[in-house]
Simulated scan of single mutants.
Amino acid sequence: MYSKGSAGRAYGAASYARVGLESDVLSASPHRLIVLLFEGADTAIGTALVHMKDGNLAEKGRAISKALDIVNNGLLAALDREQGGQLAEQMAALYDYIARQLLKANLHDDCAALLEARRLLADLASAWKAIEPGLQSA
């Protein structure tokens, strides 16, 4: 029924990881969902860096596209510009800059632009994690 070879084990591990992620997403708070988006973007950028180093342009492009999708359709789309006011507008401008860095990295094989996008997202993720509800002392 299941393959016993290494490809079968890899497929099984990938399926298990996917189910774990899906379960995490389905049970996550809104705060945790944003953390997952930051983690996904970081993973995609890390994958892009590996493919860029290896000269695998197609896979590099796919990984950067995934990171762009997370930034534009996840993080940027999650901003509440009405309630967030000026802070939300500044975050939107930062996400726009990050997206442009990702595009630059993809178009010009610019490792520095990719690393800049990753660093900015990591800084934002760190700040976001620090404000996790329930972690503040009463």
Rank of each mutant, 00 (worst) to 15 (best):
Y2I: 05
K4R: 11
K4G: 06
K4P: 02
S6D: 07
S6H: 09
S6Y: 03
A7R: 11
G8I: 04
G8C: 10
G8E: 09
G8M: 09
A10E: 00
G12Y: 00
A14Q: 13
A14G: 07
S15C: 02
Y16G: 01
Y16M: 07
R18H: 11
R18Q: 15
R18W: 06
V19Y: 08
G20P: 04
S23I: 04
V25R: 07
V25G: 02
V25C: 04
S29K: 07
S29H: 02
P30F: 06
P30M: 06
P30S: 09
P30Q: 09
R32P: 01
R32G: 04
R32Q: 12
L33K: 05
I34T: 15
I34A: 09
I34S: 06
L37A: 15
L37N: 04
L37P: 05
F38C: 06
E39M: 03
E39A: 12
G40R: 03
G40N: 06
A41P: 08
A41T: 06
T43W: 02
T43L: 10
I45P: 03
G46R: 01
A48C: 10
A48Y: 05
V50S: 10
V50K: 12
H51C: 13
M52G: 05
K53A: 14
K53F: 06
D54F: 02
G55V: 10
L57V: 14
A58I: 13
E59T: 02
E59G: 03
K60R: 15
G61P: 09
G61D: 13
R62M: 13
R62I: 09
S65R: 14
K66C: 00
K66I: 04
K66F: 12
K66P: 01
A67Y: 01
L68A: 11
D69H: 14
I70S: 00
V71N: 06
V71W: 11
N72A: 10
N73E: 15
L79C: 11
L79V: 08
L79M: 10
D80Q: 03
R81N: 04
R81C: 04
R81H: 13
E82P: 01
Q83P: 00
G84H: 00
G85W: 06
G85C: 09
Q86F: 04
E89M: 08
M91W: 03
A92C: 03
A92Y: 02
A93Y: 08
L94C: 13
L94A: 12
Y97D: 08
Q101M: 14
L107Q: 12
H108K: 11
D110H: 07
C111E: 14
A112Q: 13
A112G: 02
A113R: 02
A113N: 06
E116L: 10
E116Q: 11
A117N: 02
R118V: 03
R119D: 02
L120A: 06
A122T: 13
A122V: 05
A122C: 05
L124I: 13
A125H: 12
S126P: 00
A127E: 08
A127I: 11
W128P: 04
W128I: 03
I131E: 04
I131V: 14
I131R: 04
E132R: 15
P133G: 11
G134A: 14
S137A: 12
S137Y: 08
